[in-house]
Design a protein around this nucleic acid. Sequence first.
RNA 1: GCUUCUGUGGUGAAAUGGAUAUCACAACGGUCUUCGGAACCGUUAUUGGGGGUUCGAAUCCCUCCAGGAGCACCA
Length: 557
Amino acid sequence: MKKIENIILDLLKNSLKENNFQIEIDLENLEHPKNLEMGDFSSNIAMVLAKESGKNLREFAEQIHAKIKPHIYIKKIETAGAGFLNFFLSNKFFSDFLKNEKNLKIQKKLSGEKILLEHSSPNLFKPLHVGHLVNNSIGESLGRVFSYSGADLTQVSFPSDVSPGIAKTVWALKKEGKNKNFSLSDIAEAYVYGTKKYQEDENIKKEVRQINKEIYEKTEGENLKIYEYGKNLSLEHFKEITSKLGSSFDGFIFESESEELGKKLVKENIGKIFKGSDGAIIFEGSKFGLFDNVFINSDDFGTYLAKDFGLINIKNEKYNFDKSFTIADVEQKDHFKLVKKSYEIFDKKVSDKFIFLSHGRMSFSGQEKISSRYGNVPLVFDLLEKSSEKVKEKNPELSDEEVEKISIACLKYAILKVSSGKNIVFDFEKALDFSGDSGAYLLYSLVRAKSILKKAGDFEKNSQVSDFEKNSQVSDFEKILYRFEEQVEKSLRDFSPHHIANYLYDLAQEFSSFYEKTKILDSENSDYLYNLKLVEKFSKTLEKGLELLAIEKVEKM
RNA sequence: GCUUCUGUGGUGAAAUGGAUAUCACAACGGUCUUCGGAACCGUUAUUGGGGGUUCGAAUCCCUCCAGGAGCACCA
């Protein structure tokens, strides 16, 4: 079965040819009218044509309309508005759509492409916070969209395992006598304490610097032991949480690896790309409309610029890919521009394969700007706990596993429904409001649909029957049900899963509306089979969509 | 100050340059469930200001206003 867009496009092409209109037409000239009453597809080709010749819009529309051949999938065509040609699909189209799902030949946009994706990169020794949740939700979903679109995907994460912040934490842990067997919350407290003390006392600054040096250089001793223990603990915590969120990684590249290499490469290119300044080694971004910044500091440690510089090199050596994506917070946008620019001078071919996507910052309604450095940003762990409480309140009989799935769905959906470049205002109450536009609504719709299919019993047997067609008028439900694939394409185009999220919500709303109006389990109804098939298709579509958002479904709620 | 992003009902968001700007929350009113009410139906209310391009602008260009982010040894 050919895609319906292409069928309509062909009809239009033919008409243009018969009219001797010399104009190119493609899928750009075909869209869905905003309002379903205006048809399923709409073409602006008459307007484009009129623009080129300066004649009357409606006149062209009428001429094109007159030469369009009839087709079994087109019920009627109308000329409307300023000169739109509106196409209404026939009942036959919808029943064939429900029957022929597997025969649809979908051109996979990324077929054969090898993609490397980096996201969810944690700062070890710091607990995961809401920002990581945003990064993970978007990164994981995009990865699934890439795979769904035919890409050969490899996912990595880039944990920060060396930094002055970590040295401060190790210093504080040691100070408090927590040499081993400390916990994650000990680390979190130590981080805040260490950061505070570091600013207050010059002697402590010296000690921290020494610890930092030992960590960078892997000097055997007590400090390194504390460090190794904490690093391992943090990494396990990271794996555990991201696994709950639906992510698994093909590999980790640590900052300690990339710092070493980055520093080496930067030093080799002093004079060519980098230059010395005040004891540090900098890149003069200002020459390229950016800004100057330090790659190697005066203590001879690579900053995160050198680390990301080295990272590009490691990725390129270690993995085979056509494109490499990095998902990061918008506040790092300029940082990546700088890294990419400097690497471009080093090796343009490699630099060109790297794409840095930024997602919005998380802000909190009613609170001042929050920095995780001082420990007052909501942590993923706390959020999950808080949201699980609310879910339990709603239904105390659910298992812990189900409760967790539902809370994660709510949190993720609140993030994913917003266009990914934009900042997100996070309102806890709203994110966990289970009515209306929420993750819970999607899960609930799926549970309802599946429950019907289950009760339909012998539906499986009957679903082989091939001659069902809707007798009554087709509803808005199926009119948007066939649009799933194009929403995935939009998400791919914009690198933003929100198209899928919003579409699924619209679709679930249409299902609920249909559900209220129609008694589905009524075998006397002449549309019985059709309706069941429709619900089945809806259920499959919603499942697929949730999978692309990396939201797990539940059996009951 | 320079660079950059964002301004859409009371609030939070959506809208490949298309038609009457969509959705949710809040507010108000209704359905009274028996296929799962975490639901459905209805009412009120919106594109920061000013120019420009276009048959057509929330969207593109200019300008002003407001807010966020980045701008040298944190990541």
